[in-house]
Computed example of a mutant assay.
Amino acid sequence: MMPELSCYTTALVDHLGPAAADRLADSVRLRVRLDAPDGVLAFSHHDRVDGGSLAYASTGDWATARAALAEQLAEHDSVIVVGNTYHLPWSPQHLSQSVAHWFVLRGHRDGRWRVSDRFDALLPAGQQRPFTGWLDDAALRTALTPLGRCAPHQHNRDVYALGVPVEVGDPDQYRWLRPGGGGELVWPGEWLHEPAVVLAAVRDRFRADDQALHRHADDLWAAARHHCHRLTRRGEPTLATAWAELPKALRFAADSARRGRPRPGVLTGVFDRLIELTTRTEVYR
């Protein structure tokens, strides 16, 4: 069974094979950058689990992209591609919101592509169910419609999707991940990495800045999924439960703030509980 992860890590595990789920569990941690000039936070959720073998590829020409994907599939079992949720019929954001979404190609014949998207989650837009099926060339081209320039916090998710900063290619072009590695960037700015320090810093930023809470609630949702994956495998159910409560509290606080009724106590309570439990456990050491 595929663990409950983000769309990025779901695709990574699907592409790399079942052993990658254990590597991911061992590599999960949370880093945050607070000092970006635009004030937008950046998060890194885990160390690399692909052995440095993957890098983004991109092209503005569909015929070139199609040929490259077919060639890669002929040499390898699968390819991770960067989809656009607005154009994915199986996404709850279909025809409503354009967000980068990784899924996997697993076959190609007679102008048709076998798709594997094992991401399963209840999202604000609705339930995302796993999808397996075939798309013809035209449907795949539409599914991979370039997203164009996106908000900085969404761009950061692409940059750190492999765990370290990498060059993401041109967002105005079709994109996928190719073997061969390369494209790693220098870590910009200063990053916090000690678990309790990270949680306290994010708590304080969210309490002081409603916009940061709205922008980054999804980043903490992904962090909660990753940490629950690690903690469940490490036999730490109490801390896993505390992480699972975090996204609910953040969404409640964000909704309250939108209505003009901020709930800083909710943020303090859920983060402080996580900090307390994290400080007492050896699982991150």
Rank of each mutant, 00 (worst) to 15 (best):
L277V: 12
A36H: 05
L277H: 08
L73M: 10
F43S: 04
V104L: 07
W102K: 01
Y8L: 02
V283C: 07
H45S: 03
R234F: 07
F271K: 06
W176R: 03
E167F: 14
A100G: 12
R48F: 04
T238N: 03
T281G: 02
G269S: 15
V197Q: 15
P152G: 10
A20W: 02
M2R: 09
L12Q: 03
Q127A: 13
L246S: 06
L123S: 03
G51A: 12
P262D: 05
A63Y: 13
G235N: 06
R31P: 00
L105Q: 01
D14G: 04
H216N: 08
L246P: 04
R175M: 09
H101M: 08
D77L: 14
G39V: 14
A200I: 08
T278Q: 11
V99K: 00
Y56C: 06
V166Q: 09
V283M: 04
T268M: 13
A100E: 06
E282I: 08
P89R: 09
G148R: 08
P37T: 13
F206M: 14
R285Y: 00
Y86S: 10
Q97D: 03
H193W: 10
P18T: 03
G126C: 09
H216C: 08
G181A: 12
G51L: 13
L220C: 07
W102F: 14
